[in-house]
């Protein structure tokens, strides 16, 4: 039996009927055409599907759509405001903190959640916050540098 849910996605209120087994990731990618969240493993191992739920990073492949009811979701598409990139997005470009870009949306959102709760993180805190996000391309150095630079710029 489909269930009706109501949640906000990138600031817009969304009301829709979802199946109980439907994953938040599928609702975002298939029903809402927000394909920025990627599926790298479907099992909570890679973090490519990371989105923010009430400003906390979650693996959208492990969250059921019904769990998003009443929550506020932010995806990578909702991060840039009025054509203005988020400082994290700018820093990722500036520090070449992306290569293939498949991990990038998830990385940026995990970092966003960190900076929202801790605007001045240490390097160790950045690593801790990104520990659920795999990147096979960059070796992580530029990503950590970018997050620290964005934090510095914001403060």
């Amino acid at each position: 039996m489909p269930e009706k849910i109501r949640f906000t996605v990138n600031g817009d209120v969304v009301e829709m009927a979802v199946e109980h087994h439907q994953r938040l990731l599928d609702v975002l990618r298939e029903d809402l055409a927000l394909t920025g969240a990627k599926e790298g493993c479907g099992g909570g191992e890679c973090g490519a599907c990371t989105v923010l739920m009430d400003n906390e990073p979650v693996n959208a492949c492990l969250v059921l759509a019904v769990e998003a009811d009443g929550r506020e979701i932010i995806t990578i598409e909702g991060l840039a405001r009025e054509n203005c990139l988020d400082p994290l997005q700018e820093a990722f470009i500036e520090h070449a903190a992306l290569q293939c870009g498949f991990c990038t949306p998830g990385m940026i959102l995990s970092a966003k959640a960190l900076l929202l709760r801790n605007p001045n993180p240490t390097e160790a805190e950045v690593k801790e916050a990104l520990s659920g996000n795999l990147c096979r391309c960059t070796g992580y150095k530029s990503i950590v540098d970018a997050v620290l630079a964005a934090a510095e710029k914001q403060s």
């Binding site: 920025g36 470009i93 990038t104």
Partner: peptide, 23 residues
């Protein structure tokens, strides 16, 4: 020169299209 990647903006905004994003 260490110029910025041409694909940077697409990849940080989620606009970059990979196969599974195509329907």
């Amino acid at each position: 020169q260490s110029v910025a990647r041409l694909d940077g903006i697409e990849k940080v905004t989620g606009e970059a299209v990979f196969v599974d994003d195509i329907s």
